[in-house]
């Protein structure tokens, strides 16, 4: 167990190191002289000197990396050349939106997928199971960038049930109006997750319910409800937990889409406006932070997972 965790931590550090190297080298993918391209119309000798110092572009490559990573560890990810805001402050004001979206949508997804899967797995291949299975299969072909605009069209533009684009209210300016603006994007995100959780849980439950210990529980005369919640769901929860970690990458893609769609100033919205303004240092900073965050979340789920089911560590 300890050995397993140590191995995972080493792998984690190696991955984060490579992520940082990759993020560092992004600047060198720019055509021509990076400093000139990054600065664009702001290419004054003074700015160039600041940028060259920031990126260490005048030094050998390896040294450049260590200068840059040194700045990163000091919380210095450079600054925007259009607004002069630091990348760190851009990230710290926008990431709560992403976190809220993800947490909110996942709560919704679990609340819907769990009862659906339980109902479907009680009678496999009967009407409810077949209907929900077909619906889930269809939903696989409706990623957020397809279903999102359709939902906005129907629920915000036509029916005015939810606020439309560019009406985001920060949580500090009213809790309920914030929740109101969060509902539509969260539903869009939740739809994709419901499919994943439902399909996994249903298949898992069906095979669990055929096992001997369930027959045993039944013959003891336990109620269906008790068998489901106390006996069948417990092993399946492990699979579910694992998939929650794996889907974080897909979820981030989804949050970027809904943020652009509804003009919510989260990380996705920020990175896209920075790209459109050629604000390369901000892009680089956000990429680094988001990538490291995803890697860490994956690691955390992996870790929880080992605690829940220690058999994994033994393999």
């Amino acid at each position: 167990m300890g050995n397993y965790i140590a191995k995972r931590v080493v792998l984690l550090i190696i991955i984060i190191f490579f992520v940082s190297v990759a993020a560092f080298f992004l600047v060198h993918l720019l055509p021509g002289n990076p400093a000139v391209t990054i600065l664009g119309p702001n290419d004054t000798p003074q700015n160039a000197a600041i940028l060259n110092h920031q990126l260490g572009l005048d030094k050998p490559l390896v040294e450049q990396y260590f200068i840059w990573i040194g700045h990163v560890f000091q919380g210095n990810l450079g600054q925007s050349f259009t607004t002069h805001e630091t990348t760190t402050s851009i990230i710290s004001t926008s990431y709560p939106i992403d976190v809220e979206l993800i947490v909110f949508s996942q709560l919704m997804a679990f609340a819907i997928a769990l009862p659906m899967a339980i109902k479907a797995s009680r009678r496999p291949n009967r009407l409810f199971d077949q209907l929900s299975n077909s619906a889930a299969f269809g939903m696989l072909a409706l990623p957020p960038f397809v279903i999102g605009p359709i939902m906005v069209l129907i629920f915000a533009v036509h029916w005015h049930v939810f606020p439309g684009p560019a009406s985001y209210v920060p949580i500090t300016q009213g809790f309920w109006s914030n929740i109101h603006t969060m509902l539509l994007p969260s539903i869009v995100l939740a739809l994709g997750s419901i499919v994943v959780y439902f399909r996994l849980l249903r298949n898992d439950l069906i095979s669990t319910l055929q096992q001997d210990f369930i027959t045993m529980a039944r013959s003891k005369g336990l109620s269906d409800r008790r068998i489901m919640w106390r006996h069948a769901l417990r092993p399946s929860s492990v699979t579910l937990l694992a998939s929650a970690g794996v889907t974080i990458g897909t979820l981030i893609a989804g949050t970027f889409v809904v943020e652009l769609l509804l003009q919510m100033p989260g990380l996705g919205f920020q990175i896209i406006s920075s790209i459109n303004q050629d604000d390369y240092t901000v892009v680089q900073g956000i990429v680094l932070i988001v990538a490291v965050a995803i890697v860490l979340v994956n690691f955390a789920f992996d870790f929880i997972f080992t605690l829940v089911d220690p058999r994994i560590a033994r393999d």
Binding site: I15, F18, V19, A22, I248, G249, I252, A253, F256, V287, V290, A291, I294, V295, N298
Partner: peptide
């Protein structure tokens, strides 16, 4: 695989 494809 640990690296998110979309971000990359």
């Amino acid at each position: 695989l640990a690296f998110p494809a979309l971000v990359a």
